[in-house]
Design a protein around this nucleic acid. Structure first.
Length: 811
RNA sequence: GCCGAGGUGGCGGAAUGGCAGACGCAGAGGACUCAAAAUCCUCCGUGGGCAACCACGUGCGGGUUCAAGUCCCGCCCUCGGCACCA
């Protein structure tokens, strides 16, 4: 152990040694409890890792190392989410090819993680764009297909001009592409592959109750799934026998107040029922609605617009014929694309009715009696009025009564609908997993047989998106032209690739058996390691990735491939690290701080400690470099302390009771705080402990105290602790050391400070035995000079005693 | 607009309803040094006071309580998410 702490000297040396002895190689071991910790696998970008990324990876590394020392068999591996738009777009921008950039960028990420001291089992490294991996992504797609969960459909799809591909609903954010927030999306008619995630809506919703996730994330998933209970009903269209307008409502109890109907501009009935006199205005309105981009349609939402079709529907409850209107506030993609309008009970319908002079009946009264407010809709629950057989019923009862009536009369039924729609997974881009489907004139849609997987992504020099809506793969005849696996006749391959989220919907299984060649995973390894014990990632994946991965897991569970149906029973979000200027760290803004630069200046251990100490793990913060000076100073002081101890010949003297108590208390607190992911306070405790230890002589400290400090610090600062540990005379790595245990008998306090308050203000502090009875404390308190002064001769009215904490005197 | 998270010294942040500001950064003063760096020691919420000590203080206004940063009601501000969902 040198006199001076020099990270540049010790860090590469220990890194090489750990590599040599394969310190982090992981094997299944039924004899030990397992712990699978996983960070959301990153897309390896050319910008490399920033200190912001490490705010996620370092804490997870601490947990992994701590769990290993605490006796768990820990799986902690890393891989690359390498297929998809970001990789392709970046390669285009650099004038290169993802084939070349992806491995290069991934190698750089790996290098950065390694010098940062993160302990991964690199023998398990995976890459979603490698054929060994995407073979199984294709296999899963076919499994979904065979289970009836993948289907083709044509329709107007979201299209991003910059991505030059279609998007799933979730990928449209505020009317713009989620990757290009300044690019409004449009619609394009295409035939696409969908996954029936809606079949799993109920389970995806219900099972949220059983998992330990941050509440805001659960809430976002609940809102996204958007379950609504109500009824689906139909009213016949006058003059078009057998035609009816079917609609969904959450308030079937208001049917007697339905004075008109509204259907979406895209509704198929529009063309059929529009009266000749209204044709011109309807066509103009529909054309206008189609022309508007979706953001315009949504943001111009303030003023409702609509047009009368000239047709009427028959309200079977009131017996009255009511006008059918078209308005763009009714969305084709939700419910049936048609609504019954109860303007007395729905504010949007109220506004629409007011604007176009339509009738506003009142069918719900406030529960306490009295009239509904005249200037707006009464949307709350109440009591049915002017509603025939429903009169007098509370809303809940009336809802049930209408549903029952509708079922008896065969005009509708109680039902549940969801906001969530199916997952559109086709992409017209090159850099993705080819969809393993063949189209044959004779046999139609034919899945590629398992023994012919993977369908290899053909090498292409010019892989740029076409912009026509067709995948670049369509321009490779050797790829497109094939034979039908069924009849052997000429056939064509599907040329679209899978959405990148398909790759990340199962990767957590692959880490269990990353080199399995015969199957997507080895069942035994998956049964041992999965589900993930702690999953960590950014809140930006709250909906898409987490919902898709949950769905695939449920499908696999249903197919009996695995025996659990939630992949991530415990999820935590790390806080975002913004740049010093409060903006996102990005190369274009020139505010990226790299771990490389920080390691060069301060060493990896000081950087790691600062990542942990800077702010609570799950809270956002702005990057500041100045604090690293503090964590480096701390390391230097620990170094000096241990060196003093080693130079003194590692005396195993008798530490005093105070020292022993502090050492054990530190073990207790640090352990507890790491378990609760409160790394900043765990490290604060170690700093506090050092402030005490630094004042002791080596003999006063003793071996247990000195060594426990090093071991407790080992998960956070792996390099320097290894160096100190060897200097303390140990042959084996400190990272193989068992986690220290504290003795509860030694952490127990003998005396305690009891605060004495007079009228709620602290006036004195008493040092008393633990568990001292009230009478004793009271007597001491009443003798206190400060207390006497503040009592000012008045007799206490009331005395409250909280054992070992405080005595509160009221006068 | 609706939903969610948050607001504590110059700064990052501590605090099962029970001593507000742990720990650290920055700053000030001192020791060591020819000097500087490093290191060590002391101080460091605001106001008053030589001091002991006193008053005030966790976005704002109320409330509950012997006791509120913490619980309740009403606001303000910041940041995220959703946005005509029938």
């Amino acid at each position: 152990m040198d006199e001076r702490y020099d990270p540049k000297k010790i860090e590469p040396a220990w890194q090489a040694e750990w590599d040599r002895i394969n310190l982090y190689l992981t094997r299944e071991d039924p004899g030990r409890p397992k712990f699978y910790i996983l960070e959301m696998f990153p897309y390896p970008s050319g910008a490399g890792l920033s200190v912001g990324h490490l705010h996620n990876y370092v804490p997870c590394d601490v947990v992994g190392r701590y769990k290993r020392m605490a006796g768990f068999n820990v799986l902690h591996a890393m891989g690359w989410d390498a297929f998809g738009l970001p990789a392709e777009n970046e390669a285009i921008l650099k004038g290169s090819h993802p084939d070349e950039t992806v491995p290069r960028y991934a190698a750089n990420f790996k290098r950065q993680l390694t010098i940062s001291g993160c302990a991964y089992d690199w023998s398990r490294e995976i890459n979603s764009s490698s054929p060994e991996y995407y073979k199984w992504t294709q296999w899963f797609f076919l499994m979904l297909y065979k289970r009836g969960l993948a289907y083709r459909a044509t329709g107007a799809q979201w299209w991003c001009d910059k991505c030059r591909t279609i998007l799933a609903n979730e990928q449209v954010v505020n009317g713009c592409c989620w990757r290009h927030p300044d690019t409004p999306v449009g619609k394009k008619d295409l035939e696409q592959w969908y996954l029936k995630i809606t079949d799993y809506a109920d389970r995806l919703l219900a099972d949220l109750d059983g998992i330990d996730w941050p509440e805001p994330i659960k809430l976002m998933q609940r809102n996204w799934i958007g379950r609504s209970e109500g009824a689906e009903l139909g009213f016949p269209v006058r003059g078009h026998e057998r035609k009816e307008v079917r609609f969904f409502t959450t308030r079937p109890d208001t049917v007697f107040g339905v004075s008109f109907m509204v259907i979406a501009p895209e509704h198929p009935l529009v063309a059929e029922i529009t009266a000749p006199a209204a044709r011109a205005s309807v066509e103009a309105y529909v054309a206008d609605a189609r022309r508007q981009s979706e953001i315009e349609r949504m943001s111009a939402a303030k003023e409702k617009t609509g047009v009368f079709t000239g047709a009427h529907a028959h309200n079977v409850f009131t017996g009255v014929d009511i006008p059918i209107w078209i308005a763009d506030y009714v969305l084709m993609g939700y419910g049936t694309g048609a609504i019954m309008a109860a303007p007395g009970e729905d504010q949007r319908d109220f506004e629409f009715a007011t604007k176009y002079g339509l009738e506003i009946p009142r069918v719900t009264a406030p529960p306490g009696g009295g009239a509904p407010p005249p200037d707006r809709a009464y949307a709350e629950h109440g009591v049915a009025i002017n509603s025939g057989f429903l009169n007098g019923m509370p809303t809940a009862e009336a809802i049930a009564a209408v549903s029952k009536y509708a079922e008896q009369k065969k005009i509708g039924r109680a039902t549940t609908i969801y906001r969530m729609r199916d997952w559109l997974i086709s992409r017209q881009r090159y850099w993705g997993c080819p969809i393993p489907i063949v189209y044959c004139k004779t046999d139609g849609i034919v899945p590629v047989p398992e023994d012919q997987l993977p369908v290899m992504l053909p090498p292409m020099k010019d892989y740029l998106p076409s912009g026509t809506g067709r995948s670049p793969l369509a321009g490779v005849p050797e790829f497109v032209n094939t034979t039908c696996p069924k009849c052997g006749g000429p056939a064509e391959r599907e040329t679209d690739t899978l959405d990148g989220f398909a790759c990340s919907s199962w990767y957590f299984l692959r880490f269990a058996s990353p080199h399995e060649a015969e199957r997507p995973f080895d069942r035994r390894a998956v049964d041992y390691w999965l589900p993930v014990d702690l999953y960590v990632g950014g809140a930006e994946h709250a909906v898409m990735h987490l919902l898709y991965a949950r769905m695939w897991t449920k499908v696999m569970c249903d197919a009996e491939l695995i025996s659990f149906d939630e992949p991530f029973p415990v999820l935590r979000n790390q806080g975002v690290v913004w740049a010093a200027d409060g903006q996102r760290m990005s190369k274009s803004k020139g505010n990226v701080v790299t771990p490389d630069a920080m390691i060069e200046k301060y060493g990896a251990d000081a950087l790691r400690l600062w990542e942990l100490y800077m702010s609570p793990f799950d809270e956002a913060t702005n990057w500041t470099e100045s604090g690293i000076a503090g964590t480096l100073r701390f390391i230097t002081r620990v170094w000096a302390m241990i060196r003093r101890y080693v130079e003194a010949g590692c005396p195993d003297g008798k530490p005093g009771p105070e020292t022993l108590k502090r050492a054990h208390k530190t073990i207790e607190v640090v352990t507890d705080h790491i378990e609760r992911l409160r790394f900043n306070t765990a490290l604060a405790k170690l700093m506090d402990h050092l402030n005490y230890l630094a004042k002791l002589t080596p003999a006063e400290m003793g071996r247990f105290t000195a060594e426990s400090m090093v071991v407790l610090l080992a998960p956070m600062a792996p390099y320097v602790t290894e160096e100190m540990w060897r200097a303390l005379g140990h042959k084996n790595s400190v990272h193989l050391e068992p986690w220290p245990k504290f003795d509860p008998n030694l952490t127990r306090d003998e005396t305690v400070t009891v605060v004495v308050q007079v009228n709620g203000k602290v006036r004195d502090r008493l040092q008393v035995r633990v568990g001292a009875p009230e009478a004793e404390v009271r007597e001491l308190a009443l003798k206190s000079e400060a207390v006497i002064r503040h009592l000012a001769g008045k007799p206490p009215q009331k005395i409250i005693y909280i054992a070992n904490k405080m005595l509160s005197i009221v006068v």
